[in-house]
Design a protein around this nucleic acid. Structure first.
Lengths: 135, 135
DNA sequence: CCGCATCCTAGGGGATACTG
DNA sequence: CAGTATCCCCTAGGATGCGG
């Protein structure tokens, strides 16, 4: 009753980064949060945003997010069924994280000019620097 | 020669968040970056920072980070061997991301007062709100 | 529309031992 | 010190089908 931390903290990670990442673990949690940040979505709406996700996996990851207290699941007892997913207040505290993730993806993975510049000059793969850059 | 993007982008993710997370994928990459952000480290120095990591896994994850261009590996041809790992310029662009991850972990996973408040009030697990909070 | 149950596989990741 | 090489297990995650 006084220990929601036990649920939230999964395997007592030693480092704050590790801790946070444990909640984003799984192939789809990050993207789910990213979309839910922008507003409540029904199951199939969410599914359409994630073209590659399986029904099973979407359900599973949503349940885990719910169990972590990051996402709320609201069932409307109507027919056909209507289930809405939304960020909880706790979930919303992840916004800076998700924003940072999204920003980096935009800048350095998708084809922006600055991203390409840096990729060239950092040269991990091609350009040997001073002593012995491994291959 | 003009396509480092092919190496960097692994499976052409559809969303920037997904893209970024694909580089943090694996059990240890986040923590590795977290520690390397603070400065260059030798293999065993890094290992001591990650008490639970296996030699094999540390090597593997470092190689993947290197291949992504986020981390550089410098071999000094001396005996005993000396290998230093450091962030590349591209890797350093992840600092805002890693900082955000670390901050959230500190605030909401480790036992800070605000974190506990929010966990109680967001009540994903216990407190039914209006219609039917699932259980 | 939303989701569970079942079956199945690839590969992530641990343990341990050996090398330059 | 900084790795490879083996073996082996486990489970994340895909495919498919049923049900309210």
């Amino acid at each position: 009753m006084s220990l929601p931390r036990a649920k939230l903290v999964r395997n007592f990670p030693g480092c704050p980064v590790e801790a946070t990442l444990s909640y984003l673990d799984g192939k789809w949690k990050g993207v789910i949060l990213f979309h839910l940040m922008k507003g409540t979505l029904r199951f199939n709406q969410l599914r359409r945003k994630l073209p590659a996700v399986t029904q099973r996996m979407l359900t599973k990851q949503l349940r885990e997010l719910e169990e972590s207290g990051l996402v709320s699941r609201t069932v409307f007892p109507v027919v056909p069924p209507r289930v809405e997913y939304a960020m909880t207040p706790l979930g919303m505290t992840l916004k800076p994280v998700v924003d940072a993730l999204a920003a980096w993806g935009d800048d350095y993975v998708f084809c922006s000019p600055e991203g390409r510049e840096l990729r060239m000059s950092s040269g991990g793969l091609h350009a040997p620097a001073s002593p012995l850059q491994a291959g």
